[in-house]
Design a protein around this nucleic acid. Structure first.
Lengths: 330, 330
DNA sequence: CTGAAAGCGCTAACAT
DNA sequence: ATGTTAGCGCTTTCAG
């Protein structure tokens, strides 16, 4: 039989055109409702119905090849433990982008090798967003891959989104809260994890700023592994104990609390992130929570602006949606 | 000036060919090292160097359009709170897929609307993997979009990966552990979150199975919100208290512990997931940990098989890499 | 208002 | 061993 196909063929716009008894151009016009074309409603319907009947799906690669414009946006997520926070951020960002016809996908980058390049080339995204500044090498690669928008933008290198947006604000708020309670000597406790060190620095610096502004000594900064005994040691090792301590996040705070329990001592502690476990701690953990959905939306908006060619600095209310959740630990 | 380009042009394989003084075909051959072509090493190098000099990047949409084969794999992540676990899983899967020249991207699906369709059409992935079974509607959409492999495969519907792989095994192990300690009346406590109910059922059932096998009564199943007072109420409300309790995950377990503390009672508790906070609980939480990296690798392998046309049931050692981390709570 | 036709960048027969 | 060439499915002038 001559018309026997060996392999299942894709349904193309040609099929739709044939089914509707029209030309491919017309089909394309109505399917994308191209502006500046006046298609009679009857024709429109004919196309739409034909497409539906056939189960037509436009084929992205072809569309992209022709138009030179992909509608995929890539979020490169950092290696650090993903919490609720990040999920929420991504989710809201995806919503906003979807509103502009863009599709967001994520990829967590473990920093192993330079597989980031593979990502761009495999996806040919319209835009890429990363939570940390890209290296010169990476930027060069993306430029060659003709990616339309990159954030954080090359110009604002040195400031990753983390340090710009979060860490600072969180650290500041923690210190402000504690100082407001009358504390005068703070400690800032950072986690062991090297992946978190940049963020940790940022938060600690935020706290230091606030202390300086209030004429207080800068916090003692300690780094601890996520381990009760180690936390206890650290606390016991403070020569001149602080009157209260800020933790990089709730996990560190929990470690601290456990360490102090072991020691039989007690110091006010404030965490960050408001993970579910925080409220079940002994004592329940006071912490800084943030509306990361809002942040996601903001990022998406910046990306959209950048795609429109407007120079978009993703500038930042560092304190957007950050608040302290007061419980009993501080 | 005639040769003044208005817009930055993409570097194509034609440019490489010109630069190397060869034809596009030759370039294509060496760049993909097409089998069954004998290219002299000298020529190879000439191409490679020309490409490097120009900073040539192949353009995925064109390649995909022509070859009919995308090398993107899409992971659709469920709505439920993403932990360390999922990150690890995805990460390992990505590694394995990368080994086969495939690039993994993820998208968390909030289940809002049917934006999943958008995803496929925007990405044209070679394969899609989801943590829950796809609906008939979704499957139809993917078929039309000519996606080569889908897992869980339509045939094994009714079993999502969660229930098949994890829940069961985790619940079973929890119960086994407790029974091994001499307990005879168990409770299973599930979280409030509706997104988690399917998984919860699975784990609870696993425990029930084990109890039945051991000739013990099936566990009482309770559902609690993540709240200390509510947890206390639930515990206080048990007519005939269990001798020990399994929690759906560590967060629920922590809530339980907090509730009991409030009540002044105490019951052995075993959690699941081994989140960082578990070890800082009072008492430190005994829990079931899993090597989700291994699972990720397994999933990736199954996907690869499916892409090769081998019927791949993603069959499953339900207990792969699951173990209990014994601490003091049980 | 609709149709014909020219490519987008790439791969893979088919020639040479 | 290298070159020529025909599309992949789609958008978009340009004619009619």
């Amino acid at each position: 039989m001559a018309d026997q196909k060996k392999t299942k063929r894709r349904i193309t716009s040609v099929d739709v055109a044939r089914e509707a008894g029209l030309s491919r151009a017309t089909v394309s016009f109505v399917l994308n409702d191209t502006p500046g074309q006046s298609i009679p409603e009857a024709t429109r319907q004919r196309v739409l119905q034909a497409a539906a009947r056939l189960g037509y799906t436009p084929y992205a690669p072809a569309r992209t090849l022709r138009s030179g414009r992909s509608d995929v946006v890539l979020f490169v997520l950092p290696d650090w433990p993903q919490g609720h926070t990040v999920a929420e951020l991504v989710d809201r960002a995806a919503q906003v982008l979807a509103g502009a016809g863009l599709t967001l996908v994520t990829h967590v980058h473990t920093g192993q090798d330079d597989d980031l390049a593979r990502l761009w080339t495999a996806l040919a995204p319209a835009a890429v967003f990363g939570m940390r500044p890209f290296t010169a090498h990476e930027l060069a690669g993306m430029r060659r891959a003709n990616i339309a928008a990159v954030l954080p933008s090359p110009e604002q290198s040195g400031h990753d989104v983390g340090s710009t947006l979060w860490l600072n604000g969180v650290g500041r708020l923690q210190a402000q809260y504690l100082i407001g309670k009358g504390h005068t000597r703070l400690a800032y406790v950072l986690p062991d994890d090297p992946r978190l060190s940049a963020l940790g620095q940022g938060r600690a610096e935020g706290a230091a700023q606030v202390c300086a502004e209030a004429g207080l000594p800068v916090p003692i900064v300690s780094t601890i592994p996520l381990d009760t005994a180690a936390a206890a040691e650290t606390v016991a090792g403070w020569r001149q104990p602080p009157t209260a301590v800020c933790a990089y996040n709730d996990e560190v705070a929990l470690a601290l609390l456990a360490g102090m329990r072991k020691l039989g001592t007690s110091l006010p502690v404030i965490g960050a992130d408001d993970i579910p476990a925080a409220r079940f701690a002994l004592p329940p953990l006071t912490t800084v929570a943030q509306d990361s959905g809002e942040l996601g939306a903001r990022i998406a908006a910046a990306l959209l602006r950048a795609l429109n060619g407007e120079p978009s600095q993703l500038d930042v209310l560092p304190d957007a949606g950050i608040r302290v959740v007061e419980r009993e630990s501080a």
